[in-house]
């Protein structure tokens, strides 16, 4: 066990299998959220209140999918004691951390990227004011930051309680963050503009968000990889 734990090179074939295992376990979940996402998109164009309902539903689907897959791939692994099986494989804690990083990030960031792309295209090509682009992009990246915080906490603690606490806290804080961004004259102030307006404040907020994501992912991966044992 120690020789595996001290190994300098990652065991990529096993990491690949662990990633596939996580994706396989999440396939039904992913299908449900993709279906929900398509449904929420399809009601957006029905009218004014349907627009808000659809948009909120779409964001909810994305956030819920991110949190749900964390619960399935990490918390359940502890609760249902399948981690013991993983420990029987020739993997080090570093391999395990890398597998969790890859599986969770791909599961979240692929649909997230599609969301960002689709939302931007919809804003630019429909009668919606193009000024919404900056605000929307910052909100989308904020959702990604929240997901990374959840992932980092779950990786660090691997307990359901802390995961739930952080998830609820972040979701409660999302609304004030949306409010602050919308009220900021340099970001939300341009929401109704006909053209895309990108200000220095928007750049600053975006850089902070990206920095937070990078620090969270790299930091968690680094500290988790240094562990000599799984528990």
């Amino acid at each position: 066990m120690n020789s595996i734990a001290n190994r300098a090179v990652l065991n990529m074939p096993v990491i690949k299998q662990l990633v596939y295992k996580d994706w396989y376990l999440n396939r039904k979940l992913l299908a449900v959220y993709v279906g929900g996402g398509i449904f929420s998109l399809s009601i957006i164009s029905l009218g004014e209140w349907q627009f808000f309902m659809g948009a909120i539903m779409f964001i909810t689907m994305l956030v819920a999918m991110g949190n749900h897959q964390l619960s399935v791939t990490m918390i359940n692994e502890r609760k249902e004691q399948t981690l013991a099986f993983v420990m029987s494989l020739p993997v080090s804690p570093a391999d395990y951390a890398m597998a969790k990083f890859l599986s969770n990030m791909v599961l979240f960031f692929v649909p997230w990227s599609l969301l960002v792309l689709a939302t931007t295209i919809v804003i630019l090509l429909t009668p919606l004011p193009d000024g919404l682009v900056a605000f929307t992009l910052l909100v989308c990246v904020l959702i990604a930051v929240n997901h990374c915080i959840c992932w980092a906490v779950t990786m660090a603690t691997e307990t359901e309680g802390s995961f739930l606490l952080v998830m609820i806290g972040l979701n409660c804080l999302l609304n004030p963050a949306l409010y602050l961004l919308a009220r900021s004259p340099n970001i939300g102030g341009h929401n109704l503009n006909g053209d895309v307006v990108w200000t220095t404040t928007a750049t600053l907020v975006l850089l902070c968000e990206i920095l937070a994501i990078v620090l969270l992912l790299v930091g968690t991966l680094y500290f988790r990889s240094r562990k000599k044992v799984f528990y």
């Binding site: 398509i38 399809s42 164009s45 919809v122």
Partner: peptide, 10 residues
Amino acid sequence: DKLLPQLWAF
């Protein structure tokens, strides 16, 4: 033919 999927079409 809208960019957003139409519920009625589903």
